[in-house]
Design a protein around this nucleic acid. Structure first.
Lengths: 137, 137
DNA sequence: AATCCACATTAAAATCGTTCTAAACTATTT
DNA sequence: AAATAGTTTAGAACGATTTTAATGTGGATT
């Protein structure tokens, strides 16, 4: 299947029309063989380096958030004043390198089963995420 | 031991002079019998409701961050557009109620041991935090 | 207890990430 | 082709946080 039609599917599925700008964003996000982490700023830089077309910040924000809502992207919370996103949408955990401010994936298989011996009435567990902060030895 | 001298110790230990404003902040933070979660905004509101003295935002930020550096407060990562703090500084984990946007402590004893079968050369683990997102059943 | 100075406080301005707005533009439908 | 609905854009607005620069204060020193 050609990649572009895959991008168009993702966009349509997210309630967005497949425009030139949005397809460019898809290329940057989903053409990689490996998954990666990024901030909006990283993404804008990458787009600028790959194309001479201008894509406004607002378009990037809108598109990324539409993808996040449809879970084509995962948002990751670290204590920072910036949103991090992950193109790896499978359930997994993270190292956060506190000296370089960089995220590193931890595959689900590399974390032992997590037992939560407490429950909240009327609530069910939606996700269990482990964040391992690391620092220089 | 009188609480005020305890506050003065905390402040001095954090490299801060015990001023009237800072002691007021300590009263709000450390006089509670139970620990609690707050944002800077929550804290400012609480201070305003308890005293007629004005304490500027900058002072609150400075003091909270000094306490965080000395680990008299813990910073918690959930969503990136606001910092949450916790007066419970013991190692522990959290539920995050996604419908009410509220944090709930999970005592360390209520989470089984977490095994991380991956390491990063030159780095050591600083902390392991579990965030359990919950939703209505 | 008066002096002094490094540190504190403050209101206001600056900053930074993010969201909103309103006008211009483009695709799709009639 | 006209009408409609959705898009893009630059720039303004926003909210949390940090910085600034002027003024005030704790507490060590005399």
């Amino acid at each position: 299947m050609p990649k572009t039609s895959n991008f168009i599917n993702k966009l349509r599925n997210s309630g967005l029309r497949p425009t030139k700008q949005r397809i460019k964003i898809c290329e940057v996000l989903f053409n990689e063989e490996k998954t990666f982490h990024f901030t909006i700023n990283d993404l804008v830089k990458k787009i600028k380096s790959e194309t001479s077309d201008k894509i406004s910040l607002a378009t990037v924000y809108n598109t990324v958030h539409a993808f996040r809502k449809k879970e084509y992207l995962k948002e990751i919370s670290i204590d920072s004043n910036q949103s991090y996103f992950d193109t790896n949408i499978k359930d997994h955990h993270h190292f956060f390198d506190t000296s370089k401010n960089k995220l590193i994936d931890i595959d689900n298989k590399d974390v032992g089963p997590i037992k939560i011996n407490k429950s909240i009435p009327g609530k069910k567990i939606k996700s269990v995420e482990v964040l391992v902060k690391i620092e220089d030895q």
